[in-house]
């Protein structure tokens, strides 16, 4: 018998498995409950790869549509949320593959503000950069441009492993890749990203003005934020 849980209002709340069973039997409202239950999670998974709200919404819609079509492949007893997350991450991966990839990236591709941010960052000692927690829109814009030059696989593993702290086994499970494939991808992704960063570092040697700004009190531009 399918388990049901009680919420604080002592109201019967059907669990995921029951909702899947009912959806497969043609109950339209059962799947809508799953959409409401996991819509926010899927939307924020999409947010790990795409900043634009429209893109996140598209990914969310695509994920639930794919999940509905593949509902018969969901194994009873497995976590529905995890099953859905795999579909969501793969939908993001498909979107990354569809996106046009930048071939090259140079200092000239940066806007004035982004270049100033980079110069100021590079004027600080490396140890301070490690300690820095403050995030800025300029840094995010530089990162977007830089990541857009990587292959979809490289971009995906860099974000999931280096930024989100997932293990190679977890990434392999999400993507249906072997652990060796994840490790090879990771090695190549780091090498590709570091190559671009080294080129950027050489090109963006901080000027003495930037050094002064970095050593002195916070710039007016930063204060304005």
């Amino acid at each position: 018998m399918v388990a049901e849980t009680r919420n604080s209002a002592s109201e019967l709340v059907p669990d995921d498995e029951e909702l899947v069973e009912r959806s497969l039997a043609g109950d339209a409202e059962a799947f809508e409950v799953l959409v409401k239950r996991y819509g926010r999670t899927v939307y924020n998974v999409a947010g790990r790869f795409f900043r634009q709200p429209e893109m996140r919404e598209d990914i969310t819609q695509e994920t639930f549509l794919k999940a509905y079509q593949a509902l018969h492949t969901y194994r009873r007893g497995a976590s529905f949320e995890r099953w859905l997350m795999k579909i969501a991450v793969n939908a993001c991966y498909d979107e990354l593959r569809r996106m046009k990839r930048r071939r090259e990236f140079s200092l000239a591709d940066l806007a004035e503000d982004e270049r100033v941010w980079l110069e100021e960052a590079l004027a600080k000692p490396a140890f301070e950069l490690f300690e820095q927690q403050q995030q800025s829109e300029d840094a995010a814009a530089v990162a977007e441009k830089l990541l857009a030059t990587l292959s979809p696989e490289d971009r995906l593993v860099m974000l999931l492993y280096e930024r989100d702290g997932l293990s190679t086994a977890e990434i392999g499970d999400l993507m249906g890749w072997s652990r060796s494939k994840v490790k090879i991808r990771l090695f190549r992704a780091r090498r590709a990203l570091d190559k671009r960063l080294r080129r950027l570092l050489r090109a963006a040697r901080p000027t003495s003005a930037a050094k002064a700004r970095a050593e002195g009190p916070p710039s007016r531009r930063a204060e304005g934020r």
Binding site: L129, A143, L146, M158, E162, L193, L200
Partner: peptide, 15 residues
């Protein structure tokens, strides 16, 4: 260290 710190900063900025 500068290279790795920059990589970390940029990746964290995409959060």
């Amino acid at each position: 260290a500068r290279l790795w710190a920059l990589r970390r900063m940029l990746l964290q900025a995409t959060r």
